[in-house]
Write a protein that binds this DNA or RNA. Structure first.
Ligand SMILES: [Mn+2]
Ligand SMILES: [Mn+2]
Ligand SMILES: [Zn+2]
Ligand SMILES: [Zn+2]
Lengths: 152, 152
DNA sequence: ATTTATATTGAGACTGAGTCTCAATAAAGC
DNA sequence: GCTTTATTGAGACTCAGTCTCAATATAAAT
């Protein structure tokens, strides 16, 4: 495999710790995710696998994504379109998302001031912060002329 | 009606502008929403109406909520549990939400610094900001002892 | 290498929030 | 009151995601 083999080893360890088994389907799914930088839904991954002649069932993709999420390999997110999306979490530090309402493009951002204010605000309320969602919806640079023509 | 009648008038105007009709069901749904401060899902509203001997169909509640959202009477939100929630938007300025993972309690907050940073960040990317979601998930003050006992 | 115990898989049934259809009903304007 | 047409409710439908279960594959033991 050209994809970093250490990730597969790490996955194997994670599985073993839970009494789970390393199967060809699980490896294929993880490799497909590691090879992508995108925020993909289940079927994107499924079709990507199939286009590489790898046949896996949709149920197995969902089941594996759940394991990968728990193991910290994958981030599961929801941009409000009724489907979950998954992104390769390994190479990336925490970030949030700007989402273009026109073309679906996703721009990643982080802001330490915002992160700090979140901590501050939750402390004020004696609230123990576990995780957060911060999504900025709007029109990306490329879509602004197009959107203006439609009157957005 | 004890609920502000001006709101019903305003609703009537909104409907008329779209060629829609003011029906007893629509009035009942709006009044139920105006009487609540909570972030409720469709069935909460439906059962609340039924407990007041008002029988409306689920489809009509959904249909009315859509009109109310477009008209700015109601805010539709999603806290990631697979259902939409609706809150009375009229008396409140913009705010975001802290959500307790243990009891579901919702604490509202606003922070002008965060709001300003959002504008700044989107400008940097030449992204036209339309709306945003900012949700802080964690354990509320009341649930912290209970959560500690469970090992959270 | 064979055997054994059990985790995993795929096909398709199932779930549940939300939407759609359509015949019956009700609002609004005349 | 009459006419036009928007609205309603019942239930069919959609679709992402979950569950079931018999067949299969893994990994450990022998
Ligand atoms: Mn991302
Ligand atoms: Mn709120
Ligand atoms: Zn765009
Ligand atoms: Zn709580």
């Amino acid at each position: 495999m050209t994809i970093k083999n250490s990730n597969i080893e790490h996955f194997k360890d994670t599985l073993q710790r839970e009494g789970l088994r390393l199967t060809s389907q699980r490896i294929a799914i993880l490799e497909d995710i590691l090879a992508s930088e995108e925020h993909r839904e289940c079927d994107d991954i499924l079709f990507s696998l199939r286009s590489n002649q790898i046949s896996v069932s949709r149920a197995t993709v969902y089941r594996t994504l759940e394991i990968l999420e728990k193991g910290g390999f994958v981030r599961k997110m929801n941009i409000g379109d009724g489907r979950f999306r998954y992104e390769n979490k390994l190479p990336k530090p925490h970030h949030d998302h700007m989402i273009c309402l026109e073309c679906g493009r996703i721009i990643e951002f982080v802001d330490q001031e915002i992160e700090a204010r979140q901590v501050h605000l939750t402390k004020q309320h004696h609230f123990k912060l576990v995780r957060h969602i911060h999504q900025l919806f709007g029109i990306c640079e490329d879509c602004q002329p197009a959107a203006a023509n439609k009157g957005v």
